[in-house]
């Protein structure tokens, strides 16, 4: 599933922008990733662990002739590791490509910027660093993930700091 070239943002009435988000599930929680950052979704992959790698590294997968480093969202959120296969969102950021390991990839939702709110101040620090605000939907809250903040190099710097 390639999303390149898709018209993503549609201007609507005065100042509100519609954004398309891919929903992913980890444990019981749902998150949204802006589809503009998604290169591809790889279903049920089994990443190879890398001994001595930082804990957030979920392993390596073979992706289109290259070896892709994955980041485990479960680990980032402090959840126990999951056995077996997981889905991977291949994300592109300024630093390059990496894979985000999630339990399952759901549907693409269109949300309005009018429903956006920044992170609440009561959120713990670890999550505040990962989340980029939430969208208030009828069904509940959709927490937005910022791919740039999950770039492995940045995470590694965060660990070192």
């Amino acid at each position: 599933m390639s999303t390149t070239g898709t018209q993503v943002n549609r201007k609507e009435k005065a100042g509100t922008t519609m954004v398309e988000m891919c929903s992913v599930r980890v444990g019981q929680a749902y998150f949204g990733v802006p589809i503009t950052h998604i290169l591809e979704i790889v279903g049920s992959a089994q990443p190879k662990p890398v001994p001595l790698a930082p804990a957030f590294v979920g392993g390596l997968v073979h992706y289109r002739g290259d070896v892709l480093t994955t980041v485990s969202l479960r680990q980032l959120l402090g959840l126990p590791a999951k056995e077996g296969r997981q889905d991977i969102l291949v994300l592109e950021t300024a630093g390059g490509c990496f894979g985000l390991l999630v339990d399952a990839v759901g549907e693409v939702l269109t949300v309005s910027s009018a429903d956006y709110e920044p992170n609440p101040s009561t959120l713990d620090e670890r999550r505040r660093a990962l989340f980029a605000g939430t969208y208030k939907l009828k069904e509940g809250l959709l927490i937005m993930l910022d791919p740039d903040r999950m770039d492995p190099m940045r995470l590694a710097e965060g660990l070192a700091a």
């Binding site: 890398v50 790698a53 997968v61 070896v67 480093t69 190099m153 995470l155």
Partner: peptide, 21 residues
């Protein structure tokens, strides 16, 4: 990727004949 290079033990990765990484 840069983050794995910094471990220092690995010079790269490869895909084997049995499709194993």
């Amino acid at each position: 990727s840069a983050v794995l290079k910094t471990i220092g033990l690995y010079s790269g990765a490869t895909v084997l004949g049995n499709a194993d990484l």
